[in-house]
Computed example of a mutant assay.
Amino acid sequence: MILTADLDHCREAIRTGSYSFHAASRLLPAAVRDPALVLYAFCRLADDEVDEGDHKRRAVLSLQQRLDAIYAGQPKDAPEDRAFASVVEEFEMPKALPDALLEGLAWDAQERRYADLSGVRSYSARVASAVGVMMCVLMRVRDADALARACDLGVAMQLTNIARDIGEDARAGRIYLPLDWLEEAGMDVDAFLHTPEATPDVRRMARRLLAEAHRLYLRSEAGVPALPRPSRMGIYAARFIYGGIGTQVRRAGYDSISTRAHTSTAQKLGWMGQAIVRTGVSLITPQSPVLHARPLDEVAFLVDAASHQGKPQGRTAALLDVLAQLQRQDSTVGQTSNPA
């Protein structure tokens, strides 16, 4: 049982920190909305600590310890941790799912760059699709096809975020554009990070990201009717609201360097209305065969983790390796800053 005070804390964190999700969550039934708010609050807290903190490696290692404590039934004495521990127990949340998010945040701490679109999708799988699959678990959905479409939605949302934030990321020394796209355009990565400009080549990259996102948004829609009826409206709302962010980038001529796309409250209300209509249509429309499309290769491990409720698996070798790298790097920095 989630404590009322902890739930109120999580609700406020999402209300002020994630306007898009807060808007979409209002259309979810309370039985899903409350644990979803807890899930997003915990994930948002983890992301913010890694993204905005001065010690990113240490933040990831701290998150590892917090997750281990939660799954050991001894959460840190903090509202998000206590509430998430309750969600983990109530819904039997596979540890592989928050571990996937942990791995994505570890990649951020390493300032990893991605050679191609598949690499960007792999990153998106961890920081976004993992959350989408956890949402399915909160809806008591473990069907592999529905999970695969939830993963499509997560990747689409993250690609939209990347397209919107090209300039903001570059000014912070980050780049999520596929490096082979820059190579094709004859662009030097470091020069772009030093002086990001909305050149025709960069605009084309934003357009390519949004084209891939649009393809995956369309695929994801086939999975919504596989969800419990009371939850469909909120998921459609999330799809349309995030899709609307991409529309704003398009209207700016794919320039996300000199401007950052924003959506208004009126627009969000319009997309929520669109979600209501689409939910009604889904009740009388035959099931789409797209529901059964194979999952993206990059998200298959998430589908497998959530659809097979067998013996809990340990952390993957890849995650253990990246955590060990961060531990060594953090120790080295500590020894350098505190000489004997």
Rank of each mutant, 00 (worst) to 15 (best):
A185F: 01
G186V: 09
G186Y: 03
G186W: 01
D188N: 08
V189H: 00
V189K: 00
V189D: 00
V189L: 05
D190W: 03
F192L: 02
L193V: 00
L193E: 00
P196I: 01
E197T: 14
E197L: 15
P200V: 12
P200T: 09
V202C: 05
V202F: 02
R204Q: 15
R204P: 06
R204M: 11
R204W: 10
M205C: 12
M205D: 06
R207A: 13
R208Q: 15
R208H: 13
R208V: 12
L209S: 04
L210Q: 02
A211G: 12
A211F: 10
E212H: 13
E212M: 12
A213V: 06
A213W: 01
H214F: 11
H214W: 11
H214P: 07
R215L: 13
L216R: 05
L216Q: 04
Y217Q: 04
S220Q: 06
E221T: 12
A222W: 01
G223Y: 02
V224E: 02
P225G: 10
P225R: 05
P225T: 10
P225S: 09
A226T: 11
L227T: 05
L227Q: 02
P228Q: 07
R229Y: 12
R229W: 14
R229F: 10
P230E: 12
S231R: 04
S231N: 05
R232Q: 15
R232A: 05
M233Q: 14
G234S: 11
G234Y: 03
Y236C: 06
Y236T: 07
A237C: 08
A237V: 06
A237P: 01
A238V: 10
R239G: 07
R239E: 10
F240E: 06
Y242P: 06
G243A: 10
G246I: 06
G246M: 09
T247W: 08
T247K: 12
T247H: 13
Q248G: 08
V249H: 03
A252T: 07
G253T: 04
Y254C: 06
Y254K: 04
Y254E: 07
D255Y: 10
D255E: 09
S256L: 02
I257C: 02
I257W: 00
R260V: 13
A261T: 13
H262K: 14
T263W: 11
T263I: 15
S264W: 10
S264H: 12
T265W: 13
T265L: 13
T265C: 09
Q267E: 14
K268D: 03
L269V: 14
L269R: 13
G270M: 04
W271T: 04
M272P: 03
G273L: 14
G273T: 14
